[in-house]
Design a binder for these strands. Structure first.
Length: 274
DNA sequence: TCGGTATTTCCTGATT
DNA sequence: TAATCAGGAAATACCG
């Protein structure tokens, strides 16, 4: 029997976002959490506001950027408006992250819909970044100083770079992100960034650091997406969370399901630390 | 290459 | 009965 997880997750997300946000593109959104990234099922031109924000979130994830770096309110627009922004507009809206965002959206605009399944083996050659925007008038030659430097492999949040070799016996793609993207930090960042937290986790006691998973499987899938591990489940995630008890990054909260508390070794969650 | 670290995976059993 | 919790054990992947 397969995919109960998928069904569960879709139900969770549908429930949350259906109620709170009423996204008309929810079905497409759903598919992204079940093996590929939903954003790339459609051209950026057709993205909703929420999809624009999801794209921003993914770029931040890729670059390990603090969420506060990009003012989300400057991107309160749909895909059509986003695609009409110039390089200068991106610089004005996102400051130092402007070029990165511009590069990402331009690549997506040029690439169009992308349906790369995780684990897919037929690879396209890496993009030649030496001339990345052949059709974009706003990225004319005089503006090209910002595009000649190749971005790292995961520069644009392209879905699951399929070039990953599978050498491990469990047939999973590369799993570990570079140090600095620890699970507890991922959880903390969701809690601290309401734009990224559509009802997934909520504070139970903000000052004490107590929080509760509202959509446990959805959080696990987001964590799995971050780690390129489509088989992540809440059961596995919670095992990793329990290892934090010994290290005092988390403290036990007895008798309450899905409830955790930040411990003395967890940093950056307190309002006074922000 | 190796050891340490941080998960990830699988498992059994208990609890809600 | 299913979901969750608890924790042991081993595997995996990254980093210095």
């Amino acid at each position: 029997m397969s995919t109960p997880l998928t069904t569960m997750l879709e139900n969770q997300l549908t429930t949350t976002w259906g109620i709170t946000n009423s996204y008309s593109d929810a079905p497409m959104l759903m598919s992204g959490y079940t093996g590929r990234l939903w954003l790339y099922d459609s051209h950026p031109q057709f993205w909703s506001k929420h999809q624009v924000w999801e794209w921003l979130q993914q770029v931040m994830d890729m670059y390990q950027i603090d969420a506060s770096t990009i003012p989300f309110q400057h991107f309160d627009m749909d895909g059509h408006q986003l695609c009409s922004l110039t390089y200068q507009d991106f610089n004005r809206a996102a400051g130092s992250m402007g070029p990165t965002l511009f590069h990402s959206i331009t690549e997506l605009k040029l690439g169009g819909p992308c349906h790369v399944e995780i684990g897919q083996q037929d690879l396209k050659p890496e993009l030649d970044f030496s001339c990345p925007y052949p059709n974009i008038s706003s990225a004319s030659e005089e503006n090209c100083d910002y595009v000649i430097h190749p971005l790292p492999p995961a520069a644009s949040p392209a879905p699951s770079r399929p070039g990953i070799k599978k050498s491990c016996s469990r047939a999973h793609p590369k799993k570990h992100s570079p140090r600095g993207t620890h699970l507890w930090e991922f959880i903390r960042d969701i809690l601290l960034t309401p734009e990224r937290n559509p009802g997934l986790i909520k504070w139970e006691d903000r000052t004490a650091g107590v929080f509760r998973f509202l959509k446990s499987e959805a959080v696990a899938q987001l964590w799995g997406r971050k780690k390129n591990n489509s088989s992540m489940t809440y059961e596995k995630l919670s095992r990793a969370m329990r290892y934090y008890y010994k290290r005092e990054i988390l403290e036990r909260v007895d008798g309450r399901r899905l409830v955790y508390k930040f411990g003395r070794n967890a940093k950056g969650w307190k309002e006074s630390e922000k």
